[in-house]
Design a protein around this nucleic acid. Structure first.
Length: 563
RNA sequence: UGGGGCGUCGCCAAGCGGUAAGGCACUGGGUUUUGAUCUCAGCAUACGCAGGUUCGAAUCCUGCCGCCCCAGCCA
C-alpha cells in the first residue's frame, strides 16, 4: 500500500465499530469479509466494498476474508474466481490465507438445515414455482400457508435426505424456512433455503451436490462460521436483515455477526449492473471485460488507472446510506492527481503536421536535454534530437487565430517545448488546398532562454520527423453519452446511450524516440495531451498507447465559451 | 395501498441541541518553456416542506412531500 493514501475518513460504519469496541464487543476483534459471487468481473462498485472491508481490517488491525459466494453453479465459473482474485490483489489488498468459498461449508450448512427441520422450523414444500408465487401473496396482501407446511419432522427429514440423494427433479421440491406467510416483510414469508440443481458441475465441488443452499441461508451462516464481526453489504439487503438474524437465532450459533448496510456506488456515465456489463461483453459492444472503457477493475487497469487512484476515490466518496450519483470528474481527478506525481513526461504528436526549419542546416542534429518531470528532478532527464524537419500538432497551428490563441499562427512565434522559438513564415498546401507543411525559421538564441525584446507566450510540443516513432494511439472517452444510462425511456435500452465516439484509434502518431523502449503497463504523460499507458498488446515493432485521461484543459473551455 | 430506507451548496459529504467541516466542480488573481502542475481568494443567513418544544434546532417532536428497495427455487 502506498504511503500517499489519505488518512481514512470516518463514516457511520466506522463509528459503529468504534462504539462496539468501546463497549467491549467481540473481544475487541474486528473481522470483515468481501463476498463476491464469481459470476462476472469486479467493477468500480465492488472496489468501494473492497476498500471499505479491507480498509477497516487494516485500520483496526483486524482481518478481512475473501469469500466466494458460490451457491449457484449455473451462473458461476472458475474464470471469474481467478479474475476476482487478480483484481483484489491488484487493488492492493491481501487476504493472506483467508481465502474461502461458501461451498467449503456445504456439509455444515446441510447439517444446519437438518437442525432447522428437527426444530420444526423448516419443511419440504412440493409446490411448483408458480404455485409458490401465488401462495406468497403481494406487497399489500398476506400470503397463504403452503399445504405442505405441517408435514411431520420425520417426513421432512426423509424428503430432505432424498432431495440430497438426487431422487427428485429440479423444481420438484424445495426446503423452506417456516416463519410467517403473513409477514409484511416478503423475505419472511417462508423463504426457500435449498433448491434442487441437477447437472451443474460446480467449480469447487464438482458433482457432489444436487441441492444448493440459497443466499439468505448461506450468507449469515458463512459469516458466523468465519467469525465475522461486521458483515457489510449494500442497502437492498436491509430487508433481509431480519432473516439473517432469524437463522442465526434459531440455530443458536456462538457467533452472530452484525449486518450493516450502506448505499451502493452510482457513477455518472457508467453502469455497474453485472447483468448489463455481461451484455456489453456478449453483444460485442466492447472488446472484453478488460476493455479500457469498461468500469471493471480489469478495464480500469488496462485504461491506466493506478490502483492508488481508485483507493483514493473510494475514500473521497465516503460511505453512507443515502442515494448518490458521483460525477466522473471525481474519479478522473483522483487519476490525474496520482499520475501527475508519478508519470514521466514525454512528447507525442497525435495529429502530425510537418514543419521545416528553413534556416536550420540540413543533416544537422542536436541532442537537447529535457527534464522528465518539471517538479521532480529525481526523475532525471532524457535527450531529444532536434533536426530540420519536425512534426507539430495540427491543432497548434491556425492561420487565423481566435482571441487568446497563443500557439503558432502565420507570421507569429511560438516556443517549441524544451527547444527553440520558431516563426511561421509560409504555409504549404496540396492541390486540395489542405495545409501539408509549414516553413518556419528558428531563433538560435532562444535555447533555454527567452528571446530578446519580445514575449513569446505559447509553448507547443513537437518531435523530430526523422527520429520519431510511428505508433497507434487509442483515445478513449466515456462509454455512454448519458449520465444515467440506466434511465432509458420506455421501450428503450441502456445500449441506446452507448457513445459512438468512445474509442478513436489513431494509427500515424509520432512519438519522441525515447519512447522506443516503453514497456507494457508503463504510464506516461504526453505533454499537453494527457496521461497514457502502454497497452498489453504493445510490441516494440507495433507500439500501442491508451489514453488514460486528458489533462485539464482550460483552453478548451475558453474556446467553447467563445463559440 | 404493506414493509424497509433516504432527503445538508451543481456532485459527494461532515455534523448527533449551541449558532453550517472538507473534497470535486465552478469563478477570479499569482507563478510557470505543459493553456498542466502549484498557489491565493471567492463560493449554503442555509440543512425537502409546514408546524411545535427550547434562551437556542440541520440536530428533539408532529404532520406532510419527494425519491429508492422488496412479491427469483438470483445474489
Amino acid at each position: 500500500m502506498s504511503s500517499e493514501d489519505t488518512t481514512p475518513a470516518s463514516n457511520f460504519i466506522r463509528n459503529i465499530i468504534d462504539a462496539d469496541l468501546a463497549a467491549g464487543k467481540n473481544q475487541g476483534k474486528v473481522a470483515t469479509r468481501f463476498p463476491p459471487e464469481p459470476n462476472g468481473y469486479l467493477h468500480i462498485g465492488h472496489a468501494k466494498s473492497i476498500c471499505l472491508n479491507f480498509g477497516i481490517a487494516i485500520d483496526y488491525q483486524g482481518t478481512c476474508n475473501l469469500r466466494f459466494d458460490d451457491t449457484n453453479p449455473h451462473k458461476e465459473n472458475i474464470e471469474f474466481v481467478e479474475a476476482i482474485q487478480r483484481d483484489v490483489r491488484w487493488l492492493g489488498y491481501d487476504w493472506g490465507d483467508r481465502l474461502f468459498y461458501a461451498s467449503d461449508y456445504f456439509e455444515q450448512l446441510y447439517d444446519y438445515a437438518v437442525q432447522l427441520i428437527k426444530k420444526g422450523k423448516a419443511y419440504v414444500c412440493d409446490l411448483t414455482p408458480e404455485q409458490t408465487r401465488e401462495y406468497r401473496g403481494t406487497l399489500t396482501e398476506p400470503g397463504r400457508d403452503s399445504p405442505y407446511r405441517e408435514r411431520s419432522v420425520e417426513e421432512n427429514l426423509d424428503l430432505f435426505a432424498r432431495m440430497r440423494a438426487g431422487e427428485f427433479a429440479d423444481g420438484e421440491r424445495i426446503l423452506r424456512a417456516r416463519i410467517d406467510m403473513a409477514s409484511p416483510n416478503m423475505n419472511l414469508r417462508d423463504p426457500a433455503i435449498y433448491r434442487i440443481r441437477h447437472g451443474a458441475v460446480h467449480h469447487q465441488t464438482g458433482e457432489a451436490w444436487s441441492i444448493y443452499p440459497m443466499y439468505d441461508f448461506t450468507h449469515c451462516l458463512s459469516d458466523s462460521i468465519e467469525g465475522i464481526t461486521h458483515s457489510l453489504c449494500t442497502l437492498e439487503f436491509e430487508d433481509h436483515r431480519p432473516l439473517y438474524d432469524w437463522f442465526l437465532d434459531e440455530l443458536e450459533v456462538e457467533c452472530h455477526p452484525q449486518q450493516i448496510e450502506f448505499s451502493r456506488l452510482e457513477l455518472e456515465y457508467t453502469i455497474t449492473s453485472k447483468r448489463k456489463l455481461t451484455q456489453l461483453v456478449d453483444e460485442g459492444h466492447v472488446e472484453d471485460w478488460d476493455d479500457p472503457r469498461m468500469p471493471t477493475i480489469a478495464g480500469m487497469r488496462r485504461r491506466g488507472y493506478p490502483p492508488g487512484a481508485i483507493r483514493d476515490f473510494c475514500e473521497r466518496i465516503g460511505v453512507t446510506k443515502s442515494g448518490n450519483n458521483v460525477e466522473m470528474g471525481v474519479l478522473e481527478n483522483c487519476v490525474r492527481e496520482n499520475l501527475n506525481v508519478h508519470a514521466p513526461r514525454r512528447m507525442a504528436v497525435l495529429h502530425p503536421l510537418k514543419v521545416v526549419i528553413t534556416n536550420y542546416p540540413e543533416g544537422q542534429v542536436e541532442e537537447l536535454q529535457a527534464a522528465n518531470h518539471p517538479q521532480d528532478e529525481s526523475m532525471g532527464t532524457r535527450t531529444l534530437p532536434f533536426a530540420r524537419e519536425l512534426y507539430i500538432e495540427r491543432e497548434d497551428f491556425r492561420e487565423e487565430a481566435p482571441k487568446k490563441f497563443k500557439r503558432l499562427v502565420t507570421g507569429g512565434e511560438v516556443r517549441l517545448r524544451n527547444a527553440y522559438v520558431i516563426r511561421c513564415d509560409e504555409v504549404i498546401r496540396d492541390s486540395q488546398g489542405e495545409i501539408i507543411e509549414l516553413r518556419c525559421s528558428y531563433d538560435p538564441e532562444t535555447l533555454s532562454k527567452n528571446p530578446e525584446g519580445r514575449k513569446v507566450k505559447g509553448v507547443i510540443h513537437w518531435v523530430s520527423a526523422r527520429h520519431s516513432i510511428v505508433a497507434e494511439v487509442r483515445l478513449y472517452d466515456r462509454l455512454f453519452s448519458h449520465p444515467n444510462p440506466d434511465s432509458a425511456k420506455e421501450g428503450g435500452e441502456f445500449t441506446d446511450y452507448l457513445n459512438p465516439e468512445s474509442l478513436l484509434t489513431l494509427t500515424r502518431c509520432r512519438l519522441e524516440p525515447s519512447l522506443a523502449d516503453a514497456r507494457s503497463g508503463e504510464q506516461i504523460q504526453f505533454e499537453r495531451e494527457g496521461y497514457f499507458c502502454v497497452d498489453p498488446d504493445h510490441r516494440h515493432d507495433r507500439p500501442i498507447f491508451n489514453r488514460t485521461v486528458t489533462l485539464r484543459d482550460s483552453w478548451a473551455r475558453i474556446e467553447q465559451k467563445n463559440g
